[in-house]
Amino acid sequence: MDTTKNRQRTPELRTLSEHPAGTPVRAVVLMLPGGAVTGHGRASRLAALTLHSPARRLVGAGREAGVKVVQLRYRYRGWNGDAADTLVDTLWALEELRREHGDVPVALFGNSLGGRAAFRAAGHRNVVAVTGVAPWLPTGEPVEQLAGRDVLIIHGDRDRSDAGAAESLAYAERARTVTALRRYELAGAGHFLLPRAEDAWAAATAFTLAALTRTGPADLPAEDSVAPLRTLLPVGYANGR
């Protein structure tokens, strides 16, 4: 039920990494969890927990480079049609981060519902990279805001949810006309990435950190020459990373 009290909620930013006093923040990863198509209930805690593994990877690998890892808690569980509540919260978070840290580069890291918000918010002045893991990219989503950004999509090839693989493939085909974009598929994985989640997180975090720190390209598999946007991420990719 939508109530006045619900409408007074505010989004929250949770810092996941630690930086000793006096250590400058040189870049930020903004993590955007999943949710629902519609709903004004509280944001899903389970969706937030889903990002625990990639957050841990980002915190550990990004510490020396001064990368701050932050996770957004939305006001509401759902996108909610034209209100685009998840996008509104994401843009709020980007402005809060700019106010606190200035114009440092920001990478958006979105899962499912959070993937849609990440791609929509990519035009913000501080965003340099966007990663979507099983992103919800319905027909008609704009792509022009991705120009000049590094972009990665990872999707299970058996994902037939509202955030299905077919939709992200169609989106990637359009988006590749405006920016460099890579897309990988996980053979046999559905929306929750099982049993390939760690492979997905390993590739997504490697890409994100490489895009932020400009230390060279991420060590990702070469694209399939026949179907580059359907390149398979090898089983066991996460081993040793």
Rank of each mutant, 00 (worst) to 15 (best):
L49G: 09
L49W: 07
L51E: 13
L51K: 04
H52E: 15
H52K: 14
P54M: 00
A55M: 07
A55D: 11
R57H: 05
L58A: 15
L58N: 07
V59W: 08
V59Y: 10
V59D: 14
V59R: 14
G60M: 11
G62M: 06
R63I: 01
E64V: 04
E64Y: 00
A65Q: 14
G66W: 05
K68Y: 00
V69P: 04
V69S: 09
Q71D: 02
L72A: 03
R73P: 02
Y74Q: 08
R75M: 07
R75W: 00
Y76W: 11
Y76N: 13
G78A: 02
N80E: 11
D82N: 05
D82M: 02
A83R: 15
L87Q: 10
V88D: 12
V88I: 07
D89K: 10
T90S: 11
L91W: 07
L91A: 10
L91Y: 04
W92T: 06
W92E: 05
W92R: 09
L94I: 06
E96V: 10
E96K: 15
R98K: 15
R99A: 15
E100S: 15
E100Q: 15
E100F: 06
H101M: 04
H101A: 09
G102K: 08
G102T: 09
D103Y: 03
D103K: 12
A107N: 11
A107I: 00
N111G: 05
N111K: 03
S112T: 08
L113P: 04
L113W: 00
G114K: 04
G115N: 04
R116T: 11
A118Y: 02
A118Q: 07
R120I: 00
R120Q: 13
A121F: 03
A122H: 10
A122C: 02
A122F: 00
A122M: 08
G123Y: 01
H124M: 03
R125F: 00
N126T: 13
V127D: 04
V127W: 02
V127R: 08
V127M: 11
V127G: 09
V128K: 12
V128H: 03
A129Y: 06
A129E: 12
A129F: 02
A129I: 08
T131V: 15
G132M: 01
G132C: 06
V133L: 06
A134Q: 12
W136E: 13
P138L: 12
T139I: 01
T139N: 11
